[in-house]
Design a binder for these strands. Structure first.
Lengths: 351, 351
DNA sequence: CGATTCGATCGAATCGATTCGACCGCCGAA
DNA sequence: TTCGGCGGTCGAATCGATTCGATCGAATCG
C-alpha cells in the first residue's frame, strides 16, 4: 500500500516510448503501431499499471463522468418513494451508455450532514434536482455559481436551469372535477410536505403563504379552485405511515369529509388504512384519491383512483437532457402530460 | 458559457497576491492576514469565482471525495429491495459527516450498460460491494488492480477486501431447526438468485455446482443440513412477484411441501400470496418463513417468521470501515449476529 | 527521381490547484 | 544588541495524464 502506484510515465519509460505515445496506446485515439501498443501493454502489466488515473484524466478532460442527483434530505426517504426510485432508475438508464455515474447528494439537512458548500465541491459534470423543488435551495445557487449545468424535475424555476415538469395543476384539476362530479362537497386534502422542515399537521394561513415545493402547491391550488378553501393536513414526508396519521386527523374532524384528496398515492394508501381502522369502507363511506400512479400492492384487488404520471419516462427524458447539456447544447424545457385513472376507491358520497 | 471560468491564479493576480496565498485564503489552512483574505475574497466575487475547481483539487489531494456502491444489475432492483436500501442509507449516513458522496455503480449488466472497464474508470476513493457477492465479479478485479480499497458486504471473499458478513449459515440453521421442530418434513426452498443472469426455475445439479452468491449458498446449505436435499426454485431477482411465481411452481409439485423456506422476506411474501391464490391458508395449510426481518406491510396483521439481520447497522459499520480505509488503516473483518423471530406464518404441518 | 503524403512517434504545454521550503520583517527574550 | 521564533507571503515543484504541433522515415505518385 505504501509504495506509489505506477504512472503512465513509468510505463512509457519501461516500454521505451514517450508518455504521449503510451497515452495513445491506452486511449486508442490516434495511430499507434501494433508492436508498440503491445510493448506498452506488456510494460504496464509488469508494473501493475491498471490504466490512467481517473483523477488526472478528469482534470485534463474537464469532466469527471459523474452526474449528481439531489434527493431530499435523506436517502432512506427518497428510496421509499416509488416515484423517486422510478425517476432515478430512468436517469441512470439514460446515462448508462456513456458510462456516466449517478452520485447521490442528500440535500440540505440537519446534524452530521455535509454542508451545501461541501456538497458543491464534489466533482460533478451536471446536477439533477430530482425532488426538492424549492426555488431557494442553497445548493442550487452554489451549483449555478460554479457553472454546473442543472436539470430540475418539477423543481426550482430559474433561468439557468433546464426544467422538466408534469402538468401538476391540470392533473389535479381533472381529479378534483371527477370527485366533484361524483357529488362530493366536504373534501379535505392530505398534502405532501411543503418544505422539508419536519412540520406536519393542519396547514394554517402562514404556512400556506410561506411558499414551498411547486408540485405540492400546484396540486393544492387546483383542488381549491374546484372546491374552494378546504382543510389541509400536511405530512412531513411521503410515506404510507404519515398518510395514515394525516388521515386519522382529517377523519376525526367534527364535520367528517366525504372525500379525501391525497397528494400522492403513498399518502392515499395511508389514508385508506386510517379509514379502515375507523371502520369506514372505501369508497362506500369515504372516497380517497391519490396522485402519481404507482403500483400499490398494499391495496389488494382495489385500484386507486389517481392521476398517472409517466415516471420512468420522466427519468429517461431527464437523462437525455443531461446528455444534451454535457454536449454543450441547451435543451428546451419540457412539460409532460398526465392522465386521470378512475379506479375503485372513488364513488358517490354516502346518502 | 463559452468563456472560460476564472481560475484561482486569475483571482490571485487581481488581488495582487501569489496563487499560493490565494489558495490558503480559500482553504483556511495556513496563516493568512485578515486583510489579505478579504482582498482575495473580493477579487473572487468580482470575477465570479466560486471556489477551487473540484477536479484540480482532487488530483492534487489524491482523493475525489466519492465512494462507489456497486448495486446489482439495475438501480430499480436495488431500490426495490428494502435490505439494500437500508444498507445504502446506513452507508450514506456514516459517510455524510466527511462530505463524502455515494456513487451508484450498476454492476455487470447487459445491453447499453457501461462496461466494467468504463465503470472502474470513475474517480472513486473506495468501493463498496453492497449486494453482488460473486467472487469472480470482473469489477472487483479491476478495482483491486487499481489499488482502490474495497469493502464487501456478504460478498466476494478476497484477501484484499475488507469483509462484513452476517451469520447467514447460523441464522438459516436456526430457522430450519424451528421448522423441523414444528414437525415438517416435506420442505422446499424459494431461493434468491444464484447469479444475475436472469435464470429462474428449478435448480438442477449443474446450477448448484456453478457457484454464485455466498449468502444464498450459505442459507441453502444450512437448510439442507437439516432436511437433506430439498427441491429448490430460484427467483431471478428479489421481488415479491418472483416469490409468487416461485411459490406457484413449488406448490404445484405432485408432493406438495408443507413448509416453504424463502431466502428473503420479499420472496416469502410472494410465496404467501401464491398460497392464498391457491386457497391455502398460512400457517394452517402451509408454513412460510423468510429471511432479513424487513417491514412487511403487505401482510397486514400477520408477522412473518424470519431471521432478523441488523440492516441499518450493517450500513453504518460499512461506512465506518470505508472511513478507516480512507484514513489508511485496515479495519478487521466483521461478522454480525442475526436472530430468529418466530411470527405467525409458521406452525405445525396439517394433519 | 523528386515531391507529397501518411503513419508513427516525440516534446512540450496544459488542466488548476496544493504544498513544501524559503524568505522577510518584527517582536520579545537573553 | 542580537538571536530565535513566528506570522505572513511567495516561488516553484508536483499531482498524472492528454493533446497539439512538429518531426522523421518510408511509401506513393506523377
Amino acid at each position: 500500500m505504501g509504495e506509489h502506484r505506477a504512472t503512465l510515465a513509468a510505463v512509457a519509460a519501461r516500454a521505451g516510448v514517450s508518455p504521449s505515445t503510451a497515452s495513445l496506446a491506452f486511449s486508442g485515439s490516434g495511430p499507434v503501431a501494433q508492436s508498440t501498443r503491445e510493448r506498452v501493454l506488456t510494460a504496464a502489466r509488469e508494473l501493475g499499471y491498471a490504466g490512467p488515473d481517473p483523477l488526472a484524466r478528469s482534470l485534463r478532460r474537464g469532466r469527471s463522468g459523474i452526474v449528481g442527483a439531489v434527493v431530499g434530505e435523506r436517502l432512506l426517504y427518497a428510496f421509499r418513494d416509488p416515484v423517486a426510485v422510478a425517476l432515478l432508475d430512468g436517469i441512470a438508464e439514460a446515462l448508462s451508455p456513456s458510462g456516466t455515474g449517478l452520485l447521490l447528494l442528500s440535500g440540505d439537512a440537519q446534524h452530521g450532514s455535509p454542508t451545501p458548500e461541501q456538497v458543491s465541491r464534489l466533482p460533478v459534470d451536471a446536477v439533477v434536482f430530482a425532488m426538492c423543488g424549492r426555488d431557494d435551495d442553497p445548493l442550487l445557487d452554489l451549483f449555478i455559481g460554479r457553472g454546473v449545468p442543472v436539470v430540475a424535475i418539477d423543481g426550482p424555476d430559474r433561468p439557468e436551469v433546464t426544467l422538466l415538469r408534469i402538468d401538476d395543476y391540470g392533473g389535479a384539476l381533472d381529479l378534483a372535477k371527477h370527485v366533484a362530479g361524483l357529488g362530493h362537497q366536504r373534501v379535505a386534502v392530505a398534502a405532501l410536505p411543503l418544505r422539508l422542515d419536519g412540520r406536519s399537521g393542519p396547514v394554517d394561513d402562514a404556512r400556506r403563504a410561506a411558499g414551498g415545493f411547486a408540485d405540492c402547491r400546484a396540486r393544492l391550488t387546483a383542488t381549491e379552485d374546484v372546491f374552494g378553501r378546504v382543510p389541509v393536513v400536511e405530512a412531513p414526508s411521503n410515506v404510507v405511515e404519515e398518510g395514515e396519521r394525516a388521515g386519522r386527523l382529517l377523519l376525526s374532524a367534527p364535520e367528517r369529509p366525504t372525500a379525501i384528496v391525497a397528494q400522492s398515492d403513498l399518502l392515499a394508501v395511508g389514508v385508506i388504512r386510517a379509514a379502515e381502522a375507523l371502520g369506514l369502507r372505501v369508497p362506500d363511506d369515504l372516497t380517497v384519491v391519490g396522485y402519481d400512479g404507482i403500483d400499490t400492492p398494499w391495496l389488494g384487488e382495489r385500484v386507486l383512483t389517481t392521476v398517472v404520471q409517466p415516471m420512468a419516462e420522466k427519468g429517461r427524458i431527464t437523462g437525455r437532457m443531461v446528455t444534451e447539456l454535457l454536449a454543450g447544447r441547451r435543451p428546451a424545457d419540457a412539460n409532460l402530460p398526465v392522465h386521470l385513472r378512475v379506479g375503485t376507491t372513488s364513488g358517490p358520497p354516502p346518502a
